[in-house]
């Protein structure tokens, strides 16, 4: 399974994702510079975290105008697997591949550290290696991860089972205290209607090796691989 990692000026988790795909998952992977005009030959695309274009103006707002983003959008529309992590999630929102918007954390501070997450659906290319409603641990690291959508959108997200991950306590309860940034309905990750695009604020690539504290994150990428091998996309 060939992964492509889209690199913008200011991306800084590109090498981390590369390491996991290449060294841990053991799959072919290549960087895609933001000025590329084709994403042919890739089976999945990763939009990594970082500060694309310095996050000036608004997180992800400038990156979506990069030449490669039109290709990413078409790739997604054709059913290709796309995962946006942290800043990548913000870019997918700005590009209209996922609904809603991102606000500053309600603490008004950058937040780094482990969070508990509840896997809300197994029915996606990214979550099939998890148990239903399993509680997992992944790190977050963001200043603007406060997911916002209007009531109508939230209703649809719930109705179509598009909420992939929520912030929760260790027992899986989605409490206000376990919400690190003020996100609507404790949302940490959402899918598109077609279930082939995932945006998530936590960093699965940072929790993909025992040496770094756990492998919950690896299972996100392993899910994508299993999906590919089972011929889901």
């Amino acid at each position: 399974m060939r992964f492509g990692i889209v690199v913008f000026p200011g991306s800084n988790c590109d090498a981390d994702c590369y390491h996991v795909i290449d060294q841990v998952l053991g799959q072919p992977v290549e960087y895609i510079w933001h000025q590329e005009k084709s994403v042919r030959g890739f089976d999945a695309l990763i939009i990594p975290g970082g500060f694309s274009y310095g996050d000036y103006l608004r997180t992800g707002a400038i990156a979506r105008f990069s030449p490669v983003m039109q290709e990413v959008i078409e790739f997604a529309h054709r059913g290709g697997l796309v995962i946006g992590i942290c800043n990548g999630f913000q870019i997918l929102l700005e590009a209209g591949l996922l609904p809603g918007a991102m606000l500053r954390n309600d603490s008004l501070q950058f937040r780094c550290g482990p969070v508990n997450l509840r896997v809300k659906t197994r029915d996606s290319a990214f979550t099939r290696c998890f148990e239903p409603d399993e509680v997992i641990t992944l790190p977050i690291a963001h200043g603007e991860g406060n997911y916002y959508c209007d009531d109508e959108t939230l209703k649809e997200l719930i109705e179509f089972d598009q909420i992939a991950l929520t912030y929760c306590d260790e027992r899986g309860e989605e409490t206000p205290l376990s919400n690190p940034n003020g996100s609507t309905a404790n949302i940490a990750g959402i899918l598109n209607r077609g279930r082939n695009v995932l945006g998530m604020m936590p960093h699965p690539e940072r929790m993909a090796e025992k040496l770094l504290g756990g492998e919950d994150g690896l299972r996100v990428f392993a899910s994508m691989l299993r999906c590919f091998e089972e011929g889901c996309s």
Partner: peptide, 12 residues
């Protein structure tokens, strides 16, 4: 917690 202390995935 205001510092990203894990980026580069080396912090053991």
């Amino acid at each position: 917690r205001q510092y990203d202390y894990q980026v580069q995935t080396n912090t053991v």
